[in-house]
Amino acid sequence: MDNIGVYEVSRPSLMSLLLSMIFSSGILLTSVIKNTNGKVLSYIGYFWVIFCLIVVIVLLYRIITIRRFIEIKILPDSIIVENKEIKANRIENIYVKGYFKPVIGIKPLDHKFAPYRLCFSFLDQEYRGMKELTKWAECNQVKLSHKRFMRWL
Protein backbone atom coordinates (compact mmCIF):
# COMPACT_ATOMS: atom_id res chain seq x y z
CA MET A 1 0.00 0.00 0.00
CA ASP A 2 1.43 3.36 -1.01
CA ASN A 3 1.18 6.31 1.32
CA ILE A 4 -0.84 9.19 -0.08
CA GLY A 5 0.59 11.52 2.52
CA VAL A 6 2.40 11.68 5.84
CA TYR A 7 1.83 14.83 7.87
CA GLU A 8 2.99 16.26 11.17
CA VAL A 9 0.02 17.26 13.30
CA SER A 10 -0.56 18.55 16.80
CA ARG A 11 -3.27 17.79 19.30
CA PRO A 12 -5.70 20.56 20.26
CA SER A 13 -4.86 22.36 23.48
CA LEU A 14 -6.69 21.37 26.65
CA MET A 15 -5.53 24.38 28.68
CA SER A 16 -8.65 26.50 28.13
CA LEU A 17 -10.88 23.61 29.20
CA LEU A 18 -8.67 22.93 32.23
CA LEU A 19 -8.71 26.56 33.33
CA SER A 20 -12.48 26.86 32.93
CA MET A 21 -13.05 23.65 34.93
CA ILE A 22 -10.74 24.86 37.73
CA PHE A 23 -12.50 28.24 37.76
CA SER A 24 -16.01 26.78 37.78
CA SER A 25 -15.21 24.16 40.43
CA GLY A 26 -13.66 26.89 42.60
CA ILE A 27 -16.77 29.07 42.34
CA LEU A 28 -19.00 26.07 42.99
CA LEU A 29 -16.97 24.98 46.01
CA THR A 30 -17.07 28.45 47.60
CA SER A 31 -20.84 28.72 47.07
CA VAL A 32 -21.42 25.23 48.54
CA ILE A 33 -19.27 26.01 51.58
CA LYS A 34 -21.04 29.36 52.19
CA ASN A 35 -24.56 27.96 51.73
CA THR A 36 -24.71 24.77 53.79
CA ASN A 37 -28.24 25.51 55.05
CA GLY A 38 -30.07 23.00 52.87
CA LYS A 39 -28.62 19.54 53.26
CA VAL A 40 -29.88 18.15 49.94
CA LEU A 41 -28.53 21.10 47.96
CA SER A 42 -25.17 20.93 49.70
CA TYR A 43 -24.87 17.21 48.86
CA ILE A 44 -25.67 17.91 45.21
CA GLY A 45 -23.13 20.75 45.24
CA TYR A 46 -20.43 18.51 46.75
CA PHE A 47 -21.22 15.87 44.12
CA TRP A 48 -20.70 18.43 41.33
CA VAL A 49 -17.47 19.70 42.90
CA ILE A 50 -16.15 16.11 43.05
CA PHE A 51 -17.19 15.56 39.42
CA CYS A 52 -15.42 18.77 38.33
CA LEU A 53 -12.28 17.78 40.22
CA ILE A 54 -12.29 14.34 38.56
CA VAL A 55 -12.49 16.07 35.16
CA VAL A 56 -9.59 18.35 36.17
CA ILE A 57 -7.50 15.31 37.16
CA VAL A 58 -8.27 13.59 33.83
CA LEU A 59 -7.32 16.75 31.93
CA LEU A 60 -4.05 17.09 33.86
CA TYR A 61 -3.26 13.45 33.12
CA ARG A 62 -3.94 14.02 29.42
CA ILE A 63 -1.80 17.17 29.32
CA ILE A 64 1.12 15.42 30.99
CA THR A 65 1.03 12.02 29.26
CA ILE A 66 -0.26 12.47 25.71
CA ARG A 67 2.28 13.47 23.10
CA ARG A 68 1.61 16.91 21.69
CA PHE A 69 3.04 16.33 18.20
CA ILE A 70 2.17 13.19 16.27
CA GLU A 71 2.16 11.94 12.71
CA ILE A 72 -0.78 10.90 10.55
CA LYS A 73 -0.62 8.83 7.40
CA ILE A 74 -3.34 9.02 4.78
CA LEU A 75 -3.54 5.70 2.94
CA PRO A 76 -5.87 4.88 0.02
CA ASP A 77 -8.47 3.13 2.22
CA SER A 78 -7.63 4.24 5.77
CA ILE A 79 -6.05 6.90 7.97
CA ILE A 80 -3.40 6.08 10.57
CA VAL A 81 -3.37 8.46 13.53
CA GLU A 82 -0.55 7.72 15.97
CA ASN A 83 -0.35 4.00 15.10
CA LYS A 84 -4.15 3.58 15.22
CA GLU A 85 -5.58 2.66 11.84
CA ILE A 86 -9.11 3.74 11.04
CA LYS A 87 -10.65 2.21 7.91
CA ALA A 88 -12.76 4.49 5.74
CA ASN A 89 -15.85 2.31 6.17
CA ARG A 90 -15.59 2.71 9.99
CA ILE A 91 -15.66 6.54 9.85
CA GLU A 92 -19.04 8.22 10.20
CA ASN A 93 -17.90 11.81 9.76
CA ILE A 94 -14.81 14.01 9.60
CA TYR A 95 -15.39 17.36 11.28
CA VAL A 96 -13.42 20.53 10.54
CA LYS A 97 -13.75 23.30 13.14
CA GLY A 98 -12.41 26.75 12.36
CA TYR A 99 -10.88 28.47 9.38
CA PHE A 100 -7.44 29.59 10.53
CA LYS A 101 -5.56 26.61 11.98
CA PRO A 102 -8.61 24.31 11.80
CA VAL A 103 -9.08 21.41 14.21
CA ILE A 104 -10.01 18.13 12.56
CA GLY A 105 -11.99 15.47 14.42
CA ILE A 106 -12.59 11.97 13.11
CA LYS A 107 -15.80 10.42 14.45
CA PRO A 108 -15.92 6.62 14.15
CA LEU A 109 -19.24 4.82 13.66
CA ASP A 110 -19.28 3.34 17.17
CA HIS A 111 -18.65 6.62 19.03
CA LYS A 112 -21.05 9.39 20.00
CA PHE A 113 -18.32 12.07 19.91
CA ALA A 114 -14.96 12.37 18.21
CA PRO A 115 -12.38 10.86 20.60
CA TYR A 116 -9.55 13.15 21.72
CA ARG A 117 -6.98 10.78 20.20
CA LEU A 118 -8.56 11.33 16.76
CA CYS A 119 -8.50 15.15 16.91
CA PHE A 120 -5.62 17.12 15.41
CA SER A 121 -4.45 20.21 13.53
CA PHE A 122 -1.97 20.22 10.69
CA LEU A 123 1.33 21.88 11.56
CA ASP A 124 3.40 23.08 8.63
CA GLN A 125 1.63 21.82 5.50
CA GLU A 126 -1.87 22.86 6.52
CA TYR A 127 -3.20 23.71 3.06
CA ARG A 128 -1.79 20.57 1.42
CA GLY A 129 -2.95 18.37 4.29
CA MET A 130 -6.51 19.74 4.22
CA LYS A 131 -6.65 19.37 0.45
CA GLU A 132 -5.43 15.77 0.65
CA LEU A 133 -7.87 14.93 3.45
CA THR A 134 -10.77 16.44 1.50
CA LYS A 135 -9.82 14.47 -1.60
CA TRP A 136 -9.46 11.27 0.48
CA ALA A 137 -12.91 11.78 2.04
CA GLU A 138 -14.44 12.33 -1.38
CA CYS A 139 -12.81 9.20 -2.84
CA ASN A 140 -13.89 7.02 0.11
CA GLN A 141 -17.36 8.58 0.40
CA VAL A 142 -16.79 9.78 3.95
CA LYS A 143 -18.84 12.81 4.99
CA LEU A 144 -16.72 15.90 5.70
CA SER A 145 -18.49 18.65 7.68
CA HIS A 146 -17.21 22.16 8.34
CA LYS A 147 -18.80 22.85 11.72
CA ARG A 148 -18.15 22.85 15.44
CA PHE A 149 -18.03 19.43 17.05
CA MET A 150 -17.83 17.95 20.50
CA ARG A 151 -14.96 15.72 21.47
CA TRP A 152 -14.70 13.24 24.27
CA LEU A 153 -12.05 13.83 26.92
Rank of each mutant, 00 (worst) to 15 (best):
T134R: 14
F69I: 13
A88N: 11
L59Q: 03
I104W: 10
R68P: 13
S42M: 05
R151F: 12
I64W: 08
W136L: 03
K107Y: 02
V55D: 15
L60P: 01
V49I: 15
K101Y: 00
G105W: 00
V81S: 07
L28Y: 01
L41R: 05
F149T: 12
K147P: 01
L153K: 04
W48T: 09
I80H: 02
G26K: 02
V55M: 13
L75S: 11
K107A: 00
Y99W: 07
I106S: 06
R151A: 12
E132W: 01
E126T: 11
I72S: 14
P115K: 06
K107H: 02
I64D: 12
G105Q: 05
L53D: 08
I63N: 04
A114I: 02
D77W: 02
V103A: 06
R11M: 10
M15N: 14
N35Y: 04
N37C: 06
G38M: 00
Q141W: 06
G26A: 10
Y7R: 02
L28C: 10
C119Y: 08
K112F: 10
I79M: 11
G45K: 00
L153S: 13
N93Y: 05
D110A: 14
G45R: 00
L109C: 13
S78I: 01
V40T: 14
P115H: 07
Y95L: 04
E71H: 11
L153E: 05
S78Q: 00
E132H: 11
I66S: 14
I33S: 14
K97D: 08
M15F: 02
K131H: 05
V142K: 01
L109N: 14
R148I: 07
S24I: 06
L18A: 02
S31Y: 00
L53T: 09
I27T: 08
G45H: 02
Y43I: 09
F149L: 03
V40K: 14
K143I: 07
L60A: 06
I54W: 13
L41Q: 12
L29P: 07
K101S: 13
R68D: 04
K73C: 05
I86T: 11
P12S: 13
D110I: 01
I80F: 03
E71Q: 11
I50N: 10
E82P: 01
N140D: 01
R67E: 05
G98A: 01
L53G: 13
H111F: 10
R128Y: 04
I64V: 05
I70Q: 14
L118T: 04
I94E: 11
L109A: 15
K131G: 08
R128P: 03
S24G: 07
W152R: 14
I74H: 04
F122G: 02
E138L: 09
N37G: 12
I44G: 15
K34T: 12
K107E: 13
M15A: 12
I4A: 06
L144N: 11
S24A: 11
F122Q: 10
M130N: 15
V55T: 12
C119Q: 11
Y7K: 08
V32S: 13
S42G: 11
K107V: 08
V142H: 09
F120G: 09
N89M: 04
S42H: 03
E8W: 04
